[in-house]
Design a protein around this nucleic acid. Structure first.
Lengths: 223, 223
DNA sequence: TAACGAGTTATTGGATACAATCTTAGGCAA
DNA sequence: TTGCCTAAGATTGTATCCAATAACTCGTTA
């Protein structure tokens, strides 16, 4: 699913990958400005590769570039986030559909492990990570570069919301999600594509609706 | 829908926009290599803004950048193209749904004009242009930046296929498309969102299936 | 003759220097 | 005090130069 390799070098790619990690991890909160020189110094490079990296991140929707003024960590409005979720509702069942027939036994086992680990885990950051791994792994059978990229981007741009929302639910508010994961996994194992699609659709849709019921979850500049 | 403005200057953006035009117009066929220096000279600039422009186009899927080796006009395999169409089938009804309630009378009139113009026109390039304008205009009521961008990108990356396919149909092979346009327009005018969505879905799907029945429509390097 | 390999050339990637633009601070006037 | 205007500072955009990598040529050898 991921772009992977880049076998050897490529300063700009290295910087882009590192920055992406830092942004998704929440180290840079939305709305924060990024100065090229800072990043350059931080990675011991000049501004040239940094600029290229910023362009890549801009393309992925992680930051926002404005000509002559600078770069900011992207911030989604609630309505934009709902938009992303609506797109996810339509697209992810499609990629899941393409993926299921090609999932190996090893992958299924790993999915089972992830679903169980999520159940036992209470830490928010690892929950986020496991959830992401689980879903993207269910898509890993799809032999599609472009659709995968698109899905990846949707997850990236909504990452901050997922974090804020997960924090809000904290304790056992996300039990429905866990159940849905298990249901979906069992449908996948039975190769019941249609059912898996339906569960996934509901899973995303339910989250979207819950999100819009908690409009204060995430206000720009908050956190 | 389009990014518009860029009020004043911005060499890299200007180059990107110009190159995009040239690529979509078919001036640069898929698979052709782009040398930075050439473009730089062509636009009377240095390689720096050219590289930035190439990054933008890469992000939009119009060209493909490979580290240390160069840039090529993107070429979709038939299966990748079908993939794009499957995504379109799911996404465009969504944006149409969001758009319909906000379409002004002026827009409806313009849509009528475009649909009629397409009927009378025989030239392939203008047909392509009118078709694109028609569809994107039906989406113009959607107050959504991100989804619009995504749809725009889908259209861009499949542009070469649409051209090749339209050439193949030539004479009156695209009558179904014309009828579907009129049907959709009438549904839009009646604010029958559900019906419009269904027609659009069928419109895209039909095209996809026809495309896969003509696998020789477009072989990389052809044209 | 075909295949392998070293050296040359062309092209891209990165660093530095300069220009253009925006932002901000400070002063002046209403 | 508030608003606007001007000027200095900071930051981004572009040009040029050098380094690194890849492609190509040509010669050698099995």
């Amino acid at each position: 699913m991921s772009v992977s390799s880049e076998s050897e070098l490529a300063t700009s790619h290295r910087i882009a990958a590192a920055l992406k990690e830092e942004i998704l991890s929440g180290l840079y909160p939305p709305g924060v400005r990024i100065r090229q020189e800072d990043i350059a110094e931080q990675y011991g490079a000049s501004r040239s590769p940094v600029r290229e990296a910023l362009r890549m991140l801009d393309a992925q929707g992680l930051i926002k570039l404005v000509a002559h003024t600078g770069a900011w960590i992207a911030e989604l409005s609630l309505s934009e986030c709902e938009e992303m979720y609506q797109i996810r509702e339509r697209i992810e069942p499609l990629i899941l559909h393409m993926s299921i027939p090609n999932l190996s036994a090893d992958v299924l086992e790993e999915l089972q492990r992830l679903a169980t680990a999520m159940e036992e885990n209470r830490d928010i950051e690892t929950f986020l990570k496991l959830d992401r791994e689980f879903h993207l792994l269910t898509y890993s059978g799809a032999q599609t570069a472009l659709l995968g990229e698109m899905v990846d981007r949707l997850w990236n741009t909504t990452q901050h919301y997922r974090r804020a929302y997960t924090k809000l639910l904290a304790g056992n508010g996300f039990k429905p999600a866990l159940y849905e994961h298990f249901l979906m996994l069992s449908a996948i194992k039975k190769l019941d594509v249609e059912d898996a699609e339906r569960i996934l659709y509901g899973h995303i849709r339910r989250t979207r609706l819950e999100l819009s019921q908690h409009p204060g979850v995430f206000t720009p500049g908050n956190q």
